[in-house]
Design a protein around this nucleic acid. Structure first.
Length: 115
DNA sequence: CCTATGACTGGTC
DNA sequence: TGACCAGCCATAG
């Protein structure tokens, strides 16, 4: 917790509303001064006990990055589905719809999930 | 200090 | 559509 950069990344991820997802590149761009790789590393370094919804951070392809081995990706997918995120048959997320920050104000059913 | 590696990205083949 | 390469920077050994 000595790096403001990490704190900024975590703070930003925490601001991602339920039912929404963002990409590493987006986070890196908003935070500034860091790259997507750094964000990914920061997420990897995020302990489970933290209040950071790391599962809402995915890659630019709208897919869950395979975490080496293990069921981590499956858990991530389950968490997102529980939040209302819809996965394509290919296991991809429609960033046009669930991407954050949203480019539009669809006022969809996810807004009810806020709070 | 140097090398290897990784939850990424974009472009090329 | 899928595989490969180079750039990116922090962390670990």
């Amino acid at each position: 917790m000595g790096d403001p950069l990490y704190e900024k990344i975590y703070a930003l991820v925490r601001q991602v509303p339920t039912g929404r997802v963002t990409t590493y590149g987006t986070v890196a761009k908003i935070v500034g001064g860091c790259t997507a790789r750094m964000v990914g590393y920061a997420m990897a370094a995020t302990p489970e006990g933290s209040a950071v919804p790391w599962q809402r951070v995915i890659n630019s392809q709208g897919m869950i990055s395979p975490r080496g081995v293990g069921l981590g990706s499956l858990i991530q997918r389950q968490l997102l589905e529980e939040e209302g995120v819809v996965f394509d048959p290919a296991g991809k997320i429609d960033l046009q719809k669930f991407g954050w920050p949203e480019q539009d104000s669809p006022a969809g059913p996810y807004q009810e999930k806020l709070f």
